[in-house]
Design a protein around this nucleic acid. Structure first.
Length: 288
DNA sequence: AAGAGGCCCTGATAGC
DNA sequence: TGCTATCAGGGCCTCT
């Protein structure tokens, strides 16, 4: 599912729901995610207040009152759902749930609060949960990551020196989290379209203008996507089950064979396999 | 030592 | 209907 914009949407909606709430109970139904859920996971979360939910790159950071930080990566197919408890039925004395869209399979982790629970669902299990002891360890954890698109560190000096003399193509640079944090396969194609740059162009051919162009359009695409609620393809929704809207204005992603949307461009969108991932681009206006 | 590719896993879809 | 092949929003690990 999720690149930076989608994770940011989850962060916002999750933060609204669980900030200042206290964890009552944790159930790990399946600890075999990409990495094993820590054995002490439930114990560390139980009875802790959620201070806030933050995000770095594609990671959710849930700050707990005991200084631990619960790091969540959604992998390709991870989703978080909120299940509100209805009031107890006086006749049967049983609580029941109010979330018809909760998947029936692959609900691996449940975190209970007073009147609701959050459920982590992940069919492919490429996502994972990790406990970080405190802010110092968090800093270490992300020390090798590059800047985010919105960061002032993502500037012409940084980009031009990084790409200099490199054989690697720009599509792979955009996916490289050591170069820039948070971009994935959808937004890499969308960014390069706005730049009019082919995805297979090598880093060493980028001059300062190209770098400035790349930086500008990266910031635009990522912030537009956040403002549109992310991209909903397959199962992405925010924690309330609402779809994003950015997929409706994709310029190239999953548009193979269709016409270029640029005014007066007669190009066709092509799909090219680069390092085993699909790249989409216009054969006419992405010449560079 | 940079860079490409395999692989972890399930599900949706297409083609026969 | 049912089989098989291909492809998916990520990123760690291995090999050259």
């Amino acid at each position: 599912m999720p690149e930076l914009p989608e994770v940011e949407i989850v962060r916002q909606t999750l933060n609204n729901k669980i900030k200042q709430k206290t964890v009552k109970k944790v159930i790990v139904k399946n600890s075999n995610l990409r990495f094993k859920v820590p054995s002490k996971f439930s114990k560390i979360l139980k009875n802790q207040k959620i201070l806030k939910v933050c995000r770095f790159s594609k990671y959710l950071l849930i700050y707990l009152s005991n200084e631990n930080i619960c790091l969540v990566h959604l992998g390709m197919s991870g989703t978080i759902h909120i299940v509100n408890f209805k009031k107890k039925n006086l006749f049967t004395n049983a609580s029941f749930y109010n979330y018809p869209n909760l998947p029936s399979k692959h609900n691996h982790i449940e975190i209970f609060f007073d009147n609701f629970k959050i459920v982590y669902n992940d069919p492919r299990r490429f996502g994972y949960f990790e406990i970080i002891k405190n802010k110092i360890y968090l800093k270490k954890r992300f020390s090798y990551f590059g800047p985010e698109p919105s960061s002032p560190e993502f500037n012409v000096n940084y980009v031009s020196s990084y790409l200099k003399k490199k054989e690697k193509n720009i599509k792979n640079f955009l996916l490289d989290q050591k170069f820039i944090s948070g971009i994935g396969n959808i937004y890499a194609s969308e960014i390069l379209y706005l730049c009019r740059i082919r995805p297979d162009r090598k880093g060493k051919f980028f001059n300062k203008n190209d770098c400035a162009n790349l930086i500008k359009n990266t910031k635009i695409v990522i912030s537009d996507a956040i403002n549109k609620g992310g991209s909903s393809i397959r199962n992405f929704k925010n924690v309330y089950g609402k779809d994003g809207q950015f997929q409706k204005i994709f310029k190239v992603y999953q548009r193979e064979g269709e016409n270029c949307k640029r005014v007066n461009c007669k190009g066709i969108i092509l799909k090219k396999n680069i390092s085993n991932r699909s790249s989409f681009f216009c054969n006419f206006c992405q010449k560079k």
